[in-house]
Each structure stands twice: as structure tokens, then as C-alpha cells.
Simulated assay, not measured.
Amino acid sequence: MHKIHCVAALAGSLAAGLVIAESAFAEALSAEAPVCAPGDGYQPVCGIAPPEDLELSPDGRHLFMSITPGLAGQQVSRLRVMDLHRQQVSDLDVAIEPAAGWGDGQCAAPTQAPGAHGIHLSRRADGRHQLLVVNHSGREAIEFIELEAADKGWTATWRGCVEQKGVGRFNDVAATPDGGFVATVMFESPSMAPPLPLVQLLDGRDTGYLMSWAPGSPLAKVEGSEAPFPNGVQVSADGRHAWFAAWTVGEIRQFDLQDKRTLAHIPVGYMVDNLSWGRDGRLLGAGISDVAAFQRCFASHVEHCPVGFKVSALDTASGRHRVLFEAGEGVLAGASVAVEAAGQLYVGAYTGDRLLRVSEIRLED
């Protein structure tokens, strides 16, 4: 059973294959979480499992969260939901009720609760709310989950899936207008154990690519999309372009899904992880600033990694990119996503015990 994902997934899968003497570094770091105190323009929400990816609910009152085990492997990969008014987080239980027209009809219902890595919320053609979930727990698949408003929040029901039969390990996923999706593959491996030593996996070489699926068509590699550790992905409203993060080289790339070619490489100055659309149509990114710090924390399984991070916005029409917020060590370990809600940014992470609510920021140019 796999209960590992994202960069946190690498920690567990490489433990047996890497022997790195970093004990002095680990011992120098406290196992205790940093103080949960507000800072200049931000307020942490602490005591929660690390929310690697976030999606704002259609009513704007909740955040759906994918949970990572963290660098120390202390959590179970799963879905959670946060009430933004109460700042309370709870598990999102998933009922299993297959339905026609959700994913590949030959894909069987899961035999265990799905894990959660990258997630993407969209509205289907019939108006129903669909959450796509990258799942590594028990199988490699994109799970199709229906979300429905309820008196006390939201309910989740598994409706279908598309299973990965090959060796590509997914990272993130985004729905397409035709009822399908585009997913990033971070690397190829028979399991979630990466095929390369960590230093090679992070050196900027191409390790993965995009895959696409649509009703009536098989899951397939998108030719010409090879990139260094593909991470977060979003798709343009017309379905023509995929925007995705090349994590290890600090770029956001624009890929033409019709012509099968990369149109733009946009350097952002940090290891951009997941992506989300802001209300003004710009692409929001978040990620850590220092690959060396990540390597040290990863090797020693340091849950509260002392690493800085940035949040930025990209105007996909003009190519203009600017940093919206940044912080140094000790504020948020392993920043991985930024989502806009009610004029504020919620910044999640793949390790640690918190997210940040960033309020003193001007989202507009």
C-alpha cells in the first residue's frame, strides 16, 4: 500500500536507497513546530496536516485540501476540507458510488480510501461539481469525485477513474473542456520510488512529461512535452494550452496541446510547485526558494524544514511575472500552492503543520 506523494513521497521511497550522513544537521534542528504566531501581513492556521494542494469551493466558503504525509511521514494521504469562516479543518469522507460518464468505464472502484496528491475542481457540462484527484494509494490513478453542497458543508462521492497502467507517476491534474484531463508525470518508475538518486532527480534534466485523457480516447503521453520534474498544471479555458511548472528549473511553461510544442519558458526565480487561477485571470504559483535546503531536509526527514518561499502571479497574455509575497525560513515549511479567496491568499505546504493566510497584499497590478 502506498501512502506517499509529491516531494514528500520521495522521502519514504528513497530512504532505503540513499545513505546520506546528515545526522548533525537533523540534530541541530528542533523537532518542534515553529511558534504559531502572525507576522507581517500573514496569519498561520496551525495544528493541521500539511495541505499540499488547495481548491476553493464553488460557494467560496471552504477549501478542499490534499494531504501529504510530510517529510517525516507522519500523516496519511487523504482529502480534507477547511471551513474558512471558522478556520476549522476536517476529513472529507468519500462515498463509493460509480456512475456512467465519469472517467474510464473499465476502471474499477477503489478497494481503499483514495489518497490525494494534486487536485482540480471544475464544473462538468451538466453543471455538477467534479474534483479530480491524483491517487497513489493502492494504485496509480486519477479519481473522479463528485462534490455536492450540504447543510454543513460538502459531501464527496467517488464516481469513476482513469488508471495508469504504465510507469509514469502522476503529480497534478487539470480538467479539460471536453470532459477529459491533462496530468503531469514527474518521473517514470514501476513504483513511487524515483528512478534516480535525489541529486540527479533535482539537477534539471528532463524526468517527466504531460499525459492526456478524453472520453473515448486512451490515456496517452503528450508528445513533445518532456520537462524537468513536471509539477502543477492548469489548462486554458478553451483547452488549447497547458500551463505547467517545471519544478527543478524554476519555470512555468506554456504548451500547445494541439500543435504539441512548448511555446514559452518563463523563469520565476524559485521552485514553483502547484498552480491556480486567480480571479483576475493570472496564474498564481508558490514554491520553495532553496533546493539545497530541501535536499538537507529531505535526507534527514525534517518535517518543519527551514526554507524560504515565494508566491507569484503570471499574466499569461503578456508574460509579465511578479512576486506577490515572500518569506524566509521558519514561516512555512515546503510551500506548494497559493489560492485566492475573498481577496486573500491561502498558501499550502507539502510538509509541516500549517498553511498561511496572507492578507496584506495587493493582488492587482
Rank of each mutant, 00 (worst) to 15 (best):
E226D: 15
L257E: 12
D280P: 02
G115S: 09
E223P: 01
S77V: 07
T111Y: 01
G127N: 07
N231S: 07
S191W: 06
P218Y: 12
L363H: 05
M1K: 04
R362D: 14
A175T: 11
G166S: 14
V19R: 13
H62W: 15
A37L: 11
W154T: 08
G60Q: 04
L84F: 11
A125F: 02
R362L: 06
T207S: 15
G287F: 09
D259Q: 15
S90R: 15
V76D: 14
I67H: 03
S189W: 10
V35C: 01
G168R: 00
V235L: 11
G204V: 01
D259L: 14
P114M: 10
H241E: 11
T351D: 05
Y42C: 01
G115P: 07
S30L: 03
P306L: 07
I48G: 10
V94D: 03
P34N: 04
N135D: 14
A141I: 10
S137A: 12
I145L: 12
A156E: 00
F25R: 10
Q254R: 15
D238V: 10
W154D: 07
L71W: 01
A15L: 11
S189C: 08
P230F: 00
L84D: 12
H120P: 00
F187G: 01
L284N: 11
M65C: 13
F187V: 06
R78H: 10
A8G: 15
L201C: 07
A125H: 12
Y346A: 03
D238N: 15
L201F: 14
Y209N: 04
E22L: 10
P190W: 08
Q254V: 05
P195F: 05
Q88I: 02
L147R: 08
R261A: 09
G204H: 01
E360P: 02
S30T: 13
M211H: 05
T248P: 07
A338T: 11
D172A: 14
V307N: 03
A26F: 01
G232Q: 04
M1A: 05
T176C: 06
Q344E: 15
E226M: 03
A293G: 05
D59L: 12
D53V: 02
I96P: 02
A37K: 12
V331I: 15
G348V: 09
T351S: 15
S90T: 13
D59S: 11
H304F: 13
V19K: 14
E326G: 13
C161W: 12
R205Y: 03
R86C: 03
A293K: 12
W277E: 00
G60V: 03
V89C: 07
Q87R: 15
H301A: 14
G105F: 02
R279T: 10
P44Y: 07
R159N: 04
A26G: 04
M211N: 04
C297I: 01
G105R: 10
S289T: 15
V133P: 00
A99Y: 01
A349H: 06
A16Q: 13
A113W: 01
G319D: 03
Y270Q: 09
V331A: 06
C6R: 00
